[in-house]
């Protein structure tokens, strides 16, 4: 056998260990340089926000570009942001709205996704196609009828009015359906033989295995609704109910309009919960994205 194997001659590329090491290192260097450049590009606005939030006004408006402030003005900016506007109230509103939306979304999307992924019933494919089609409808399309209905019911200016259009998440149904499809049928069969009802199978057997998908979906959902300005702007006029972006708008409208130090301080306070959430859910989030094939 050995005689028939192609043998390498020294001239063809006998590589010394040192040369191989150097080649590997230069490769790694370029790859990392490229990735770092991308990271800088994405992170710079955030860093600029953080830096501005601790700069005094004259430095913000000075003509020359300086990264680090000469005078630390953080306490004043953050103090002003927290006292001049109910920034913490905005954050709390954001937490209430996002939690409410997420809980109801999960309660509805998980059983729907299970039914679409694992139950045999007539019209299953049609329903799934409808789900896919619904993914293409932006919130602006049903906004008017929902607004009219809420106004008619006297529910404008409530937390409920901010949450209700998002209770049914077709994206959630789609994501969980993709995830559940890979769940072994045999385990569901075993659960049926053990006497579990379909709802118990969903919540006690299938859901515990879906934590990566739940974490991924949660990040999507929380980010989207924490940052949503469009819908709260329509249904909320009471500043005490305003979620973060709407609150920021009210804050910027007042006499603070040009106080960028205070504005970025408020923005930092309102972005922090998102960053913390993502850091906690990071690993699961990535698992969920890779396992469901949704990108």
């Amino acid at each position: 056998m050995q005689a028939t194997l192609p043998t390498r001659t020294a001239s063809e590329g006998e590589v010394s260990p040192a040369a191989a090491m150097i080649r590997r290192m230069t490769g790694l260097f370029f790859v990392h340089a490229f990735l770092l450049a991308g990271a800088v590009f994405i992170l710079l606005p955030f860093v600029w926000m953080l830096v501005t939030s601790i700069k005094p006004p004259e430095e913000v408006f000075s003509a020359e570009l300086s990264f680090w402030p000469d005078r630390f003005y953080g306490l004043e900016n953050y103090g002003f942001a927290l006292t001049a506007a109910p920034v913490l109230r905005f954050a709390l509103n954001g937490v209430i709205v996002c939690t409410g939306i997420l809980v109801v979304q999960l309660l509805i999307a998980i059983p729907c996704a299970y039914a679409l992924a694992k139950l045999q019933f007539p019209g299953r494919h049609l329903l799934f196609i409808l789900v896919l089609l619904a993914l293409c409808i932006p919130i602006q399309v049903p906004a008017l009828p929902i607004y009219v209905a809420l106004a008619w019911l006297g529910l404008l200016n409530t937390y409920f009015s901010m949450m209700v259009p998002f209770f049914l998440s077709v994206f959630g149904i789609f994501l969980f359906r993709q995830f559940f499809r890979s769940f072994p049928d045999d385990i569901i069969h075993a659960a049926r033989l053990d006497g579990m009802s379909e709802f118990e199978i969903v919540w006690r057997i299938v859901t515990p295995s879906a934590w990566p998908a739940i974490a991924a979906f949660s990040v999507f959902s929380i980010v989207a609704h924490w940052n949503d300005l469009y819908w709260p702007l329509i249904v909320i006029s009471d500043i005490n109910l305003a979620p973060p972006p709407l609150g920021m708008m009210y804050f910027a409208d007042a006499e603070t309009g040009s106080n960028y130090g205070a504005l970025t301080a408020a923005a930092t306070v309102l972005t922090a919960p998102l960053v913390v959430t993502f850091l906690f859910a990071r690993r699961r989030f990535i698992e969920g994205i890779t396992m469901t094939g949704v990108k």
Binding site: P184, D186, I187, H189, A190, A191, R192, L193, D194, G195, M196, I205, P208, S209
Partner: peptide, 20 residues
């Protein structure tokens, strides 16, 4: 009868244990 009412038990090729 539904599966659990049939007085049958099944062992699956994949074992089908509840993973969590």
């Amino acid at each position: 009868l539904r599966p659990h009412e049939r007085r049958v038990a099944m062992v699956f090729q994949s074992y089908a244990l509840y993973p969590h």
